[in-house]
């Protein structure tokens, strides 16, 4: 039988893991309130006791001297993420619905192959994808522009949306579609009136994924924009110089991660209220 030490062991492991996860946040948090002197003075963690907190880092990211202004990149990132996520969800759920409800066949290619084809785009290393994207955008005159990045981001997010939504739609009984059609809805209305309203949980999950991936993209923005458009991850990386200004970097990183944390908290609240569960079965 389990020894009495078991609970001690259990909670120790949980505590260690919690430190491992929360540690970097704590580190960034303290560092963002330091200045050059405090950083160079060896590892310190407790404000006032070990070092004198300052707002230098935070001032620097809002246009302070020697820093940057994160507001514009933030807005760019927000526009790109929201637009690309919305387009991906709209196109993705339509595609997913078709893949879930209709049988496609082209030679040996069937529904599951098409789904795999969507997902497989995420298997390819971004380096391989970026070259064709570059030429495509150049050809369309969309390099270094928000619409260009939105298009590229949609291409990245669509597979995720399709994948999540196919799985979700498969879980909704087909009889609901059939009933809606019998009740007088043509296929598109069936989708909009009977299926989408019951898909809130799936849409939320897909939106979460899209937002996270879209928001955090650095590589494509880095390669496909130059001077006109800068996204938040780019701005943060641009701070990096030969002597990294850790305090400013920390502040910028926390500022960049904040929207995702808020989003996660909001979704978590929805989940715990049960708003998302049990719409079907």
């Amino acid at each position: 039988m389990r020894s009495r030490l078991y609970p001690v062991f259990k909670y120790t492991v949980i505590a260690l893991w919690a430190c491992f996860v929360a540690g970097p946040f704590f580190w960034a948090m303290t560092t963002s309130f330091k200045n050059a002197n405090a950083v160079q003075g060896g590892p310190t963690y407790i404000p006032w006791a070990q070092y004198e907190p300052t707002l230098t880092g935070w001032r620097n990211i809002f246009g302070g001297a020697g820093g940057i202004d994160v507001i514009d990149p933030f807005i760019n990132s927000a526009i790109i993420t929201i637009a690309a996520s919305a387009i991906s969800l709209a196109l993705g759920s339509l595609a997913a619905y078709a893949l879930s409800r209709y049988r496609f066949k082209l030679g040996f290619i069937k529904n599951s192959d098409i789904v795999f084809f969507f997902v497989s785009q995420r298997i390819m290393p971004p380096v391989v994808l970026v070259i064709p994207f570059f030429y495509l955008l150049q050809w369309g005159g969309l390099l270094d522009s928000i619409p260009g990045l939105v298009i590229v981001t949609v291409a990245l997010l669509l597979p995720i949306a399709v994948w999540v939504m196919v799985d979700f739609f498969n879980g909704i009984p087909r009889e609901i579609d059939e009933m809606a059609m019998l009740d007088g809805c043509p296929p598109f209305q069936t989708f909009v009136r009977a299926i989408l309203p019951n898909s809130l949980p799936g849409l939320t999950v897909a939106a979460m994924f899209c937002a996270v991936f879209g928001w955090n993209d650095f590589f494509f923005a880095f390669r496909l924009t130059f001077t006109e458009v800068q996204t938040l991850p780019q701005a943060v990386v641009a701070l990096n110089s030969s002597i990294p200004p850790w305090w400013t970097l920390s502040a910028a990183a926390l500022f960049g991660v904040a929207p995702l944390v808020l989003l996660a908290l909001w979704v978590e609240r929805l989940l715990s209220k049960g708003n998302l569960s049990g719409a079907v079965r």
Binding site: M179, L182, G184
Partner: peptide, 21 residues
Amino acid sequence: TPVWRRDTAMVYQQFINYPHL
């Protein structure tokens, strides 16, 4: 005649209703 114009109603063995309504 497509399904949505058949003027037909159906009751299923499984209790099928619109869950969100």
